[in-house]
Design a protein around this nucleic acid. Structure first.
Lengths: 337, 337
DNA sequence: GTGAAAGCGCTAACAA
DNA sequence: TTGTTAGCGCTTTCAC
């Protein structure tokens, strides 16, 4: 099967390529009859445009990209669905790139985008990202960038975040109300602004409740389950009075439950647990897990909408259009039900 | 910041664009000194090639695509990671497309690929896909296609599958050994070949064990949790003797646990449960869930390797290179531990 | 080892 | 309403 091109369509129809091109784009400049002739032939020969040629010619790729740390996390998976839903409405393609929490990957990906591969970018920064220098290049090229969930202060671009400080404070308060006095805070890559906000919320709640903040109760976890498990086990042994845990990432749930089980700490009898998690299985864990659920799908949607607004008009959107969507606390038996 | 092009580099260096192009591709035709001059300037001006121009010129996009039903499923998320790992080694980009289990989406996506957007495709078909006509076009264009996990018979292309029949039989046997006599089989989109293989495995085990096959114990579930829950609830009520369940999709776990809980059926005392699931949280469910775990990452890797082999030499790979990787049964308390 | 030149397939002024 | 004509930025023969 030969590849059919615009030129061939044009030749066949005794039209110019530009007319055919316009007809296929449903341009107002083209007569109804011509359009239908073109469309008919295109369909008959099952013509498929070459996106590279079209991107090159128009300097628009009709493609946006999503750059995220990983996809084996309910939050990001759900956010992708939100972004996709919006992109699809507008006839845009979505390229997903994974950084695996590595700054270098993120840098390389963004660098690539300066070549014009995509029209805009929606990103959640990697755990290693502490500066925004690699975003400057993109922005200098006028490629719109929206950050979601995990952002970084210095960069002047719109963000869609959740109320991390508040929801963390709420989770902490919830534990306090259930009688917890010594609460372990498991941070996930401490340098993330989101992690700091959650830590701040925790501290704020402690303070309001008149409980002391104990730095030794803050444990910085990472990607590796095995070492997380070990860290948690150790701190639970050392800080034997611990009777509450806040885990700030879905990926920590397993390690927390395992550590408690190994140490024969009953949840919620001996120790109460709440995790930031968008996993649907939270409801059927043993025991069912109290979670801080982030508005993942909605965040994706909002980010995509901002991006498209910006694509339409570069100046329509600025950092001041940033949004904050609320997370919600879902109480289950891991904190006493 | 102006966009730097090859032409500009060439002008600056008093070289032709072709020389610069070759130098950047590390062609053997170019002298070492020239190469280093080019590279240096490119770096200094932070030159980034335009991928569309390069794809158009070379008729290769250095991009492969992954087409999957959804991403909020551990199996697919892990498979993506496997594919990505291989693609990255080879300097290829990975585009991920979601069909949301809809055939129409899948058709549109594959159609698009006929335009030359990607060099090759790795796909797991949607639940609605019962024919392979929409793949013919791609194959006719010589775009290599590898199917994984969910394939379809008629199409002559390599596949990477798991031993669904065997693992399903194994799971069924496991339940039988634990004393189950009336085993509910929850299929997920019955028409999928993978679903049929699993059903066949179930039937085979029953037969070997001398247990009757009861069609009313086979329930076809779908995407919607709510209706799945209802279906399961109903059949459990009608078939009150049921003392075992096999759920053939990760997404069914929640509904199964909920249904049992609502009907006050104790797992594993009253009813034993095994699910096909790659979710890490299986170990901490209430009770911990016996799972059939598929080799997701490895399947992704294998599929990608096949694809690259085929990209290198169209004739190097054929349907006869298809692979079958084994799943494994992980026994936990939901079947008695 | 390097350059000239002809595209790749499509878009978008500018004309007509 | 349609056609002409340059490109878009890079690759790739074919010469030298």
């Amino acid at each position: 099967m030969e590849k059919v091109t615009l030129k061939q369509l044009a030749a066949e129809l005794n039209l110019s390529t530009s007319t055919v091109s316009r007809a296929l784009q449903d341009s107002y400049q083209i007569g109804a009859e011509t359009k239908s002739r073109v469309l008919q032939l295109a369909r008959r020969l099952s013509y498929v445009p070459n996106p590279h040629a079209s991107s090159l010619g128009s300097r628009r790729s009709k493609t946006i990209s999503v750059v995220i740390p990983e996809v084996t996390d309910s939050y990001f998976a759900q956010a992708i669905n939100g972004i996709e839903a919006v992109a699809q409405e507008r006839g845009y393609h979505v390229l997903i790139y994974l950084t695996h929490e590595r700054l270098q990957q993120e840098q390389e990906i963004l660098k690539e985008f300066q070549g014009g591969r995509v029209d805009g970018v929606i990103m959640s920064i990697s755990a290693e990202t502490t500066s925004s220098v690699h975003m400057r290049g993109l922005l200098a090229q006028q490629v719109p960038l929206i950050l979601f969930d995990r952002a970084i202060e210095q960069v002047q671009t719109p963000t869609v975040l959740t109320n991390d400080l508040e929801s963390s404070a709420q989770a902490t308060w919830h534990l306090i109300e259930r009688g917890c006095t010594t609460i372990l805070f498991l941070s996930y890559f401490r340098n993330l602004s989101i992690g700091q906000a959650r830590l701040a919320g925790y501290r704020q709640a402690l303070q309001e409740a008149g409980l002391p903040f104990q730095p030794e109760l803050v444990v910085d976890c990472g990607l590796d389950d095995e070492s997380n498990l070990q860290l948690i086990r150790e701190v639970l042994q050392k800080q034997a009075h611990t009777n509450g845990i806040i885990a700030t990432a879905e990926g920590l749930t397993l390690s927390v439950y395992q550590a408690c089980s190994e140490l024969h700490l009953g949840i919620p009898a001996d120790i109460k647990v709440v995790c930031f998690s968008n996993s649907r299985s939270a409801a059927i864990l043993n025991p069912p897990l109290t979670t801080v659920v982030q508005p993942a799908f909605e965040t994706g949607q909002a980010a995509a909408r901002l991006l498209f607004k910006s694509l339409k008009n570069k100046n329509a959107v600025s950092a001041s259009d940033s949004q904050v969507l609320p997370s919600k606390l879902v109480v289950r038996q891991s904190t006493g039900g």
